[in-house]
Write a protein that binds this DNA or RNA. Structure first.
Lengths: 227, 227, 227, 227
DNA sequence: GATGAATGAGTGTTCATTCAT
DNA sequence: TATGAATGAACACTCATTCAT
């Protein structure tokens, strides 16, 4: 025939059956990647369902609506991230002990690595938290904001403890916590966007050094202004 | 409801005429606020035009499509922000001069304030740059990314100059620039989200101190570890 | 009018369900009539869907866009028309046999009727092919053009065969094929436009006679120019 | 600057003033070409005005609306075409004279060429008549239809005269007139679409021969069926 | 439990046309 | 006369969501 007719034989017709919990988890996984790739608004329900190999209507047996998918996703992530954050190596200073600068750096480096490893466990999650989920929806913003504030609160609390122990100088903990977290996020984002391979420990070392020491030179022999 | 009652009697029917340049600028202003408030996808053309008090079709005499509005907006912002960034007080160190820590802090505080004042000039712009415009569209992402990289490049270059002058310690300029900018952005965002009144100079002071000195205490009398 | 009164109470609210193939065919049928009646540009998607008694979005589950509807329609017609054209009674002349004028006329009449019956099977199709689809869209024009050329090619080939068999006089087959087809089309159009009842066989007879004999008188007793 | 801003310096700002008649004619010319190129629906008012180098609003000082442009255009064409058709070399047969086949062919060839030369005077007109204007609008269809019927009427009348003079065989003049005109139009169209150079006289010769003699061979020595 | 089929409510966009200068 | 500016009314199209099986 001269005129080609459309024939679409490639779509598999077989249904797949799964236990409810599995399906739910699978849908969330697919949604995570879809949202991470195209953003919440850019990813369509059809997109998510295609990845999961299910019909569009099926999704609605597990989630109330599109937003619900994102909310549940955010909740799942929140649990993981907060859990990781809270199980980090705690400040455990003998009262009255005053650590050296090098000790503080080493200590922070370890703690940072613990968190970074969780966040970087998968890039899609990081992307969702930092980019795709932002400004998506009031409720989700709230949830992401809560995660944010929880982490910030943890950092703040630590800083206050350290201040009281005089392990660090007096500072505005609220401010510093935000500044640090923002710095981290930007680093993570830049890695994500550049698609570079990530050396978590190198990042942690650099960040810890920066946070602890700042950029001004110091040393055993503090430099004298030359007149 | 069978009977639809037109409730909005306040809309004037009279056309308003304006010079093309004015209209264009006005539309961009309205779009800025609409996008900042609801995000790029969340804000509709109707929304933007309602704010401007014009018919929807009018917008299309000035912009090719919705994306074009965002692109032009981003361009307008880019010009302003980059301009401000590039006209900051430059590092002007007498060759071989080695500033004290306090001098460096004071100097950076001044420079930071110069940029922050531009970004905070209006909250909507900040919100667009940091939230609403992200992930909205490939082209805009590119543009925002270019702004980002331009600022980062400037910071990096400054850090390298300062390093060579030994005004700051050796460090990974690429990394540090990102970390700083990320910190700033997070601070700005937190102010935006909390709707708090902003004391630009206080922020600048705090940030400069943090960047320069880090969190570890130091002083004329460096603290001794008390076992 | 402040109060909008919904006047169209006759529209049923109940969904109708159909197998995909049926729906698709039904939509094509409705589109055919809508396009034939108002032209491709003049007919709206809403128009087509209203005829089919479906929501506007439903159409887009079967066709990519409005153009796709026309393309598929053209394809469907193309198959039918070309099929009919190619299965016509073939020239089957014993080699060396030289048919009389009357035989050629009778033969062509039969062949013409076979095609005309297909084209006239429904007036809407004819109208689409000859009027509504023309100049509507580059792709469709291509397709209609291909149908056109396919038919023309068939006619040309036949003419060449007949010429070689000396059943007809030597002529420019390319030219004659176009002239004949154009003549047919105009006749068809005039019937469509006048809404006259159509006697396919009468048309075929007349056309065959004209094609074969031309308008100049001839006969057993060829007329003598008087003086 | 890194970010290119749009600057459109190329549009000339100078107004052009013209006498009303000139302007009107100029607009019609531009409309002719615009319609011929993109079809009536496909060509926009903006398109027409851009060709004429005038503002869109200016057009409405000369024509009521878009349709009016096409109507006036069609009227202008109608005058020209009908005029040409009616001033053709008339049948001027001495009563009772019976021309030979060759004479009829030569005569018709001459008359055909006279019309073809007018139609082909410019391709845009031909395209408008045969393609772009079809199905555009009820009123315009009427007008084009009137042109069509006028030409057909002329042909019919001639055929009837010739029949009475027994210069041609008895036939259904209504039918034959349509068939001939359709044939012509198709030939013209094929030339237009293929963009081929046109030899009007060759076309006229071929068409005349076909119309007069048909495709069946004839001659001084009528061929005998060889059983 | 799973899904193909169907859709309402909305979006961005176009374009012929009008208004004020 | 000429036009830049403005727009209503339409349109094609999308997508999250629901229904019937």
């Amino acid at each position: 025939m001269v005129f080609g007719l459309r024939t679409d034989m490639s779509v598999s017709k077989t249904r797949t059956y799964k236990a409810a919990d599995e399906r739910r988890a699978q849908i969330l996984d697919c949604a995570l990647h879809a949202f991470a790739e195209h953003g919440y608004h850019g990813a369509s329900i059809a997109d998510v369902c295609a990845r999961a190999g299910i019909g569009r209507a099926t999704l609605y047996q597990y989630f109330r609506d599109k937003r619900d998918v994102l909310v549940c996703l955010a909740e799942r992530i929140a649990v993981r991230v907060l859990d990781a954050y809270q199980h980090r190596t705690p400040w455990s200073l003998p009262p009255g002990y005053r650590p050296t600068e090098a000790q503080v750096v080493a200590f922070m480096q370890k703690r940072l690595a613990e968190v970074l490893e969780v966040v970087f466990e998968d890039a899609a999650t990081a992307r969702l938290l930092l980019t795709a989920g932002r400004g998506a929806d009031g409720v989700v913003d709230d949830l992401l904001g809560r995660i944010d504030r929880a982490i910030l609160g943890t950092i703040e609390a630590e800083l206050r403890v350290a201040m009281e122990a005089e392990a660090i100088r007096p500072l505005d903990a609220h401010f510093v916590a935000r500044f640090f977290l923002g710095g981290f996020e930007k680093i993570v984002l830049s890695y994500l966007e550049e698609g570079r391979p990530i050396d978590v420990h190198a990042i942690a070392r650099e960040a810890a050094l920066l946070e602890v020491c700042g950029i001004y030179p110091r040393g055993d022999a503090p430099p004298e202004p030359r007149h």
